[in-house]
Nucleic acid binder design. Structure first.
Ligand SMILES: Nc1nc2c(ncn2[C@H]2C[C@H](O)[C@@H](COP(=O)(O)OP(=O)(O)OP(=O)(O)O)O2)c(=O)[nH]1
Ligand SMILES: [Mg+2]
Ligand SMILES: [Mg+2]
Ligand SMILES: [Zn+2]
Length: 576
DNA sequence: GCCGTTTTCGGCCCGACTGTTTTCAGTCG
């Protein structure tokens, strides 16, 4: 699937155009094209073949032409031309915090600095050359030195669970600050995005207390350096390289500030455009008609004033939610309490850390009505996968436990490996004897998108399979996974009555949000599982629910919201 | 470059913080 490659090219063209001083609106349209391509769950080639490119929001004739050229020739002429106008490593300078397109252009034109390496050298040996550049003074150079010194440590985006832990600690500290009336996290963390760029905190306080709260934040434990600390906001880097931003506002501004600071940026812009259309102004202090500020006690009041239904944070990505909120067409999203069981967990029989009974007890303690034990199959040798004989014994043990736990439905199952060609690690006979079969790919993930899609579709068409586990196999921040055309897979899943897993483990979150959306649109069932390898990992379910909500999933889209009786019936139709 | 319950042309979100400035540009949220 070439979606990501093309997205990267548009992103690179945006950077090049910006350095070259092109109109920011035009630059933004390239960035938007990159974003929608990245978020597309369908193979761009299929969209192009159906002549539907310009149906995608943000893709017009010009962008569509470039995409078609890439698909036909493997290159975009405009990219090549832009690239030729600029030294090859110049755009790399944009990654240095504090350096933007204007400064990068001036460094190049006025100081012949064309790469990060040359910048480092100049800072060391000939700072006077840099000081001669318009707008650069000694303090700015020091800032750049700092940025470069810490650049290696700045690790990029972190996982949702890691960010939550960090944020809880910071938040507890902010709440203890004198004058702090309330505080919460905002930004991508509140929206539940799969990775988090930085931690955004919002605090309510009277204006005369704000500066002190920010200074306290900047001086708090775990802060490595302070990027900015003013009268309303502060920005710090924590040891480890994660950035944290604190915004402090007065009580009357809190709802608008929460709305602003939750974002996303693109969602904010849509809301602000709506305000402008009505002759108003929306910012982090409120919604204004001239000098007059509309009263708002919570975010919902602001949405209502703009003619919109309340938009849950998970949906605020400018993926159609503003239109849906206007048309009263937002979905009634799945909620945490809707889940009645977990259908993918491991035990000590394969690579889990707890026994069957311990997992059952932990599920009961969570209030679940059912669970399925799905240990690995024999080809997963490193995970101590079960062969037919051990599986039979394991199933017997599960049934025996089940008889002792009458208040919770315990299903026998397996996580059967999907081979490279889409066939499975157990024979039909063996699989047919199990209550719940999850099929997952674990190895040979480095295959082309179309091949990988075929592989999973073949597994989904298998008469004994109930669920495709962690479909792409991606591991956040460590491996990309297969480039599945999830829209196509979801159609096959829907046709065959197979559920697609949202693996809730924060390292996986697979399917991811935009994939969930495609699955819902195709009418496929989802199932949210923790894939727990220990009792405490059963608690990770919330990350899966968040991901499902970000994919616009309703209760009815999710298999494990069914009652035990309904679930049995669903399983029965598969085994007829 | 995209887009349209006022538009097919003329708009395109709005503000904080810092540094280099003599009134604001650049970068970032
Ligand atoms: N109106 C407006 N709001 C913005 C802009 N940039 C950022 N914001 C708001 C919305 C963001 O969610 C919020 C926090 O900014 P961040 O840069 O931290 O982005 P966010 O947390 O969404 O993503 P992240 O995971 O940190 O990359 O600030 C902007 O250009 N305009
Ligand atoms: Mg953020
Ligand atoms: Mg931020
Ligand atoms: Zn697995």
């Amino acid at each position: 699937m070439k979606n990501q490659q093309i997205a990267d090219l548009f992103s690179a063209m945006a950077d090049l155009l910006e350095i070259l001083g092109e109109s920011l609106f035009r630059v933004n349209s390239y960035r938007k094209a990159a974003r929608v391509l990245e978020e597309l769950a369908e193979d761009i080639e299929a969209v192009a073949a159906a002549d539907r490119l310009t149906e995608i929001e943000g893709i017009g004739d010009s962008t569509a032409g470039k995409i078609r050229q890439y698909l036909a020739e493997g290159r975009i002429e405009q990219y090549d031309k832009l690239k030729a106008q600029v030294p090859p490593d110049l755009p790399g300078l944009l990654d240095v915090p504090g350096l933007g397109p204007k400064t990068v252009a001036k460094l190049w034109k006025q100081a012949s600095v064309t790469s990060v390496a040359e910048l480092r050298a100049a800072l060391d040996k000939s700072p006077e050359r840099l000081l001669a550049v318009e707008g650069l003074g000694p303090k700015k150079l020091d800032q750049i030195r700092q940025s470069l010194a810490f650049q290696a440590e700045a690790g990029g985006r972190i996982r949702l669970n890691t960010a939550r832990e960090l944020a809880e600690r910071l938040l507890a500290d902010v709440r203890r600050a004198p004058g702090a009336q309330r505080a919460t996290f905002a930004g991508s963390l509140r929206r539940g995005k799969e990775t988090i760029g930085d931690i955004d905190l919002l605090c309510q306080a009277d204006a005369n207390r704000a500066a002190k709260i920010i200074q306290r934040f900047a001086a708090s434990e775990g802060v490595e350096r302070v990027l900015a600390a003013g009268a309303t906001k502060g920005s710090v880097v924590l040891t480890g390289g994660v950035q944290a931003d604190l915004r402090v506002v007065e009580p009357a501004s809190y709802p608008a500030a929460l709305m602003y600071f939750t974002g996303s940026k693109e969602h904010n812009i849509r809301l602000r455009e709506l305000a402008v259309q009505k002759g108003w102004k929306l910012n982090e202090y409120g919604l204004f008609d001239g000098e007059k500020r509309f009263k708002a006690g919570e975010e919902a009041d602001l949405y209502a004033r703009l003619g919109l239904a309340y938009v849950p944070p998970e949906l605020r990505e400018d993926r159609g939610e503003v239109e849906a909120a206007r048309d009263a067409a937002l979905p009634e999203l799945l909620e945490d309490g809707d889940l009645r069981g977990d259908l993918h967990m491991h035990t000590t029989a394969s690579d889990g850390h707890n026994s069957i009974d311990e997992m059952i007890d932990a599920c009961r303690a969570k209030g679940y009505k059912y669970l399925a034990i799905c240990d690995h199959s024999k080809s997963q040798v490193q995970a101590h996968g079960l062969d037919e004989k051990r599986l039979a014994a394991h199933v017997e043990a599960i049934r025996k436990s089940a008889r002792r736990h009458k208040d919770i439905l315990v299903l026998t199952g397996v996580e059967v490996d999907i081979f490279k060609d889409g066939s499975l690690d157990f024979s039909d006979d063996v699989l047919a004897g199990l209550d719940f079969v999850t099929a997952s790919a674990h190895s040979a993930l480095a295959m082309s998108g179309p091949e990988a899609t075929k592989r999973l579709i073949r597994a989904a068409e298998h008469p004994c399979v109930h669920c495709i586990g962690h479909p792409t196999g991606r591991m956040i921040n460590s491996r990309p996974g297969m480039e599945i055309d999830v829209a196509e897979l979801a159609r096959a899943a829907a046709a065959n009555g197979v559920a697609l897993e949202i693996n809730a483990h924060p390292v996986r979150l697979d399917l991811r949000d935009v994939h969930v959306r495609a699955a819902v649109e195709a009418g496929a069932k989802l199932v949210i599982n923790t894939d727990a390898h220990s009792t405490d990992q059963l608690d990770l379910m919330g990350y899966g629910v968040t991901t499902a909500r970000r994919g616009w999933a309703r209760k009815g889209d999710v298999l494990n919201t069914l009652t035990p009786a309904q679930l049995r019936k669903w399983l029965g139709t598969k085994r007829k």
